[in-house]
Amino acid sequence: MTHLIREATSGDLEPAVETLRTAFADYPFTRHTLAADDHLDRLADMQRLFLARIGIPHGRVWVSDDADAVAVWTTPDSTGIADVFAELAPELGRIAGDRAEISARTEAALAPHRPTTPTWFLATVGVRPDSQGRGLGKAVIEPGLREADAAGSVAFLETSLEGNVALYRKLGFEAVAEVDLPDDGPRTWAMRREPA
């Protein structure tokens, strides 16, 4: 099946947020790092902030034509990201709620395994549950992989679902670390893909 995949615009923001909210509703990482009260609203707020302040203005975001699938990348050309993250830190802490300290410890545990050289970082990818199993995840990731290959750049991601590891291996990623997150958090795989 051929899917129409395109770069996202600001008009895709709310449909993309809804896709990511439903895709990550029970994801172990976000369940661990965002408070349980109003969890889905917190999740939507986090995805909205990331898309509107990081992905769309500074990174690259691809969506299926109906926004049932979304992939958000930061790239070696994403300038000023560190400053934006620093600016957003208080808001991200508010969104995490009573899990803010756990979220900070989680980020600290993952940081040593993240690339220190320019990288295409697949920050988030999600497919609406009722659209899964049709190849949309792969289709929405592939444009970023092609761009990374064209630039001769490494691609990187993290996943907290063991079932995703095999999918990402099919796309050329290899696990470079398995991290048992602090505070009884889920195991998370750091995965790297060399340019083709």
Score class of each variant (00 low, 15 high):
Gly55Pro: 07
Leu13Arg: 05
Leu34Ser: 08
Pro57Met: 13
Asp41Thr: 14
His58Lys: 15
Glu14Phe: 02
Leu43Ala: 12
Leu13Trp: 07
Thr33Lys: 06
Val63Ala: 00
Asp65Leu: 10
Pro57Ser: 09
Ala71Val: 05
Arg21Thr: 13
Ile56Gln: 04
Arg42Asp: 06
Thr19Gln: 03
Pro76Asn: 02
Asp26Pro: 06
Asp66Ala: 12
Leu20Lys: 05
Asp77Arg: 11
Asp45Arg: 15
Glu14Val: 08
Gln47Met: 14
Asp41Cys: 01
Leu13Cys: 06
Thr75Cys: 06
Asp77Ser: 12
Val63Ser: 01
Asp26Met: 10
Met46Val: 13
Asp38Tyr: 02
His39Gln: 06
Val17Thr: 12
Asp37Tyr: 12
Leu49Pro: 00
Thr22Pro: 04
Asp41Leu: 14
Val63Leu: 05
Ile54Thr: 08
Ile54Phe: 04
Thr30Gln: 11
Ala69Pro: 02
Glu14Arg: 07
Asp66His: 01
Thr74Phe: 00
Leu49Ser: 12
Arg42Pro: 07
Val61Thr: 10
His32Arg: 07
Asp68Cys: 15
His58Phe: 14
Thr33Leu: 09
Thr19His: 00
Leu20Ile: 06
Phe29Ile: 13
Ala36Asp: 13
Arg31Leu: 14
Asp37Arg: 13
Gly59Lys: 02
Ile56Leu: 12
Leu40Pro: 09
Ser78Pro: 07
Arg48Thr: 03
Gly55Ile: 07
Leu49Trp: 05
Val17Ser: 11
Trp73Phe: 10
Arg60Asp: 03
Trp73Ser: 04
Leu20His: 01
Phe29Thr: 07
Ala69Asn: 04
Glu18Leu: 13
Glu14Tyr: 00
Leu34Lys: 08
Thr30Trp: 14
Trp62Ile: 01
Phe50Asn: 11
Val72Asp: 05
Leu34Asn: 09
Leu40Asp: 15
Ala23Leu: 04
Arg31Trp: 06
Phe29Ser: 10
Asp45Thr: 15
Arg21His: 06
His58Ser: 10
Leu20Asn: 03
Ala71Asp: 08
Leu49Tyr: 03
Ala25Met: 09
Thr30Val: 15
Asp68Gly: 12
Val61Gly: 02
Thr33Phe: 07
Leu51Met: 06
Thr33His: 04
Tyr27Trp: 02
Val72Asn: 05
Arg42Phe: 09
Asp66Lys: 04
